[in-house]
Design a protein around this nucleic acid. Structure first.
Lengths: 343, 343
DNA sequence: AAAAACTACGAAAACGGTTTCGTGTTGATA
DNA sequence: TATCAACACGAAACCGTTTTCGTAGTTTTT
């Protein structure tokens, strides 16, 4: 088992000093031609690679970024992550990922662990529990330490940092608007509990579109489904039985698929009798039958932008520019129309 | 912006030596009661946390494990990853993830980057290109350096290391067997190019089940679809038009869904006229219509076992037990029967 | 009272690099 | 020939820990 070769090894072998080796490998002008060639050749031969940890310790940066997300088995987060990883990699950064599993405690623990020198900055989306508790002291702690932070999708106004979000309210508004323009009046919203910031925003868009068109808000047309627990079909069946509904906006594609199933079993035709639109343009939307019209959240792009903002902040630190201007980047969702809506 | 406090800071402030502080914080017997209390109180007050990087440099381990997978937006890998993350976290390890994007070069680059001190071990699944090229020199390089490696799912016989795989051949065999027992005789296989080890194994199972039942192999009943490029429906349509098929085994759920669609459009009834089973028991299987009977690969479990094997190897290194015994753990797939098969 | 044994702490090396600041040799210049 | 850059390199500090070993000062033993 070959051990990894170090500067010291090279220095000893070539009978020069460690500093000379270090400089020679960086092609420093200080070192003579012959020595440089000799050192470089030797290093290549023995496949010398500098130790990342040592460099990190010396230079105070790790070239790692920490990503904390609530769930990895989730199409949206997964695409965001892909965007982050792609951009970060292109800039020479690695990604350490932690899954909070929607738990406040795990989020805190992971964050503190990584904050102790393992990463140069964070990209995260808040766990459900954190949003519910409204406790962001761990975020404050981290930003106080001067660690850059970018929040995406599940964000909070409490923390002052860079953010990337979807135009949830506006896109919801426009979808409902579209429903109305195509002649639908009895529009339902299927959502999660309101402590999700995004759900709240989407509901705002829904309500405001109704209002904008003079349609009175009917709270009975809003169905709140549990986010993680098993959903019972009966709840959905009851909902559609006791309401005449001709269009539905769902805050995620699973809700949409579930509802479509129930509705189809009741003999209602999609999209002739009822239209469906869901958030999250994932696999399910593409392969449902009928294919689900869906709001693309452009996770890849969100991830890329988040990574870009973060790395910019990280690298600005070194130029010591204390220009604390935080941006909130708004990504525009796009409605991908498929078979579950009429035109 | 509060800077992070170090041992040196505490030592200076309390007018003791750095070593004393270090020992006091570890509750060493060497240090007097009073001093210990003083130091600990001070550390707590200023929220001292040791710097991970410094510890890593000193102790030669990072408590990070590197995961390299071909794709993150993929249900199976995502579940494996969840299993890894969960177990690793419970053991105090962080996970650095790199996506090879099915590219050989990216796999190599990422691996070499991480191998330079950033991680204590690797868990990986080979990229398509790597399997195709059959070039594993980067893996050899890494294991030669003494870095533990666990391969899962997409593995190779060339490398001698711990592995976690599915019983691909056996489970395929048993599914085809089941088809036959339920009276189906014209059984198709929809697969990818054969350089995927798993596809090869699955095909072996398929063929061997036919043989076992005295059914002659008909190569026309094997459809090979491109893995990543867009699939054209026409290819599928032609396949089902020119073959009388009453049961289909697909090596992934996307292929299955695509085929089911085509077949349904042709007016063929599932499962009355034709049965479908796919690998990867993901969202698509659960929400397809009809719901797809599917082989659960137990990604969570694979991930957990892989992480367990890796961490065991990592921590054994310190006990310096050079007992190079590599295991291959075989996970048993289970057929989840839903609506696309008869009983 | 001298020797031995503790007690409580500090100095320093080490991990593997980077970087600043000398310094001994050259060759050119005055 | 004395002076002075330029050149080519080395010594040493530093990043933040851990850990070994040495050692004053005190207590126990004989």
């Amino acid at each position: 088992m070959r051990r990894k070769i170090t500067l010291k090894d090279i220095a000893r072998e070539l009978e020069v000093s460690i500093s000379t080796v270090s400089k020679a490998l960086k092609n420093s002008e200080e070192i003579g031609r012959d020595t440089k060639e000799k050192v470089q050749a030797f290093a290549k031969l023995y496949n010398y690679k500098p130790n990342n940890i040592a460099i990190s310790l010396k230079n105070k940066y790790t070239k790692n970024i920490g990503v904390i997300i609530p769930d990895i088995v989730h199409h949206f987060f997964t695409t965001v992550f892909r965007g982050i990883e792609k951009y970060a990699n292109s800039k020479g950064y690695n990604v350490i990922i932690c899954v909070s599993d929607e738990s406040f405690d795990k989020e805190v623990i992971n964050m503190e662990l990584l904050a102790n020198g393992s990463i140069d900055g964070f990209i995260m989306s808040l766990s459900a529990e954190t949003e519910e508790k409204n406790d962001f002291s761990h975020l404050i702690e981290v930003t106080n330490q001067g660690i850059p932070l970018v929040l995406f999708d599940r964000v909070t106004d409490v923390i002052n940092c860079d953010k990337v979000i979807l135009n949830d309210k506006e896109i919801s508004f426009s979808v409902v608007q579209k429903f109305i323009q195509s002649g639908r009046k009895n529009i339902a919203l299927v959502t999660t509990d309101n402590y999700f910031n995004v759900s709240k925003k989407r509901m705002e868009g829904y309500k405001s579109a109704l209002e904008h068109n003079g349609i009175p808000l009917n709270e009975n047309r809003i169905l709140t489904l549990p986010y993680h627990d098993e959903i019972e079909d009966t709840q959905i069946t009851d909902f559609f039985n006791s309401n005449e509904i001709d269009a539905v906006l769902c805050v995620n594609e699973i809700f949409a698929i579930r509802c479509m199933r129930v509705v189809q079993k009741m003999g209602i035709k999609i999209p002739e009798d009822i239209s469906f639109v869901g958030f999250t343009n994932g696999m399910l939307s593409r392969y449902a039958s009928p294919k689900l019209s869906s709001i693309a959240q452009h996770g890849d792009k969100m991830g890329e932008i988040a990574a870009q903002m973060l790395i910019e902040k990280i690298e600005r630190e070194y130029i010591e520019e204390e220009d604390e201007a935080y941006r909130t980047e708004v990504i525009e969702g796009t409605l991908i129309e498929r078979e579950s809506t009429i035109n």
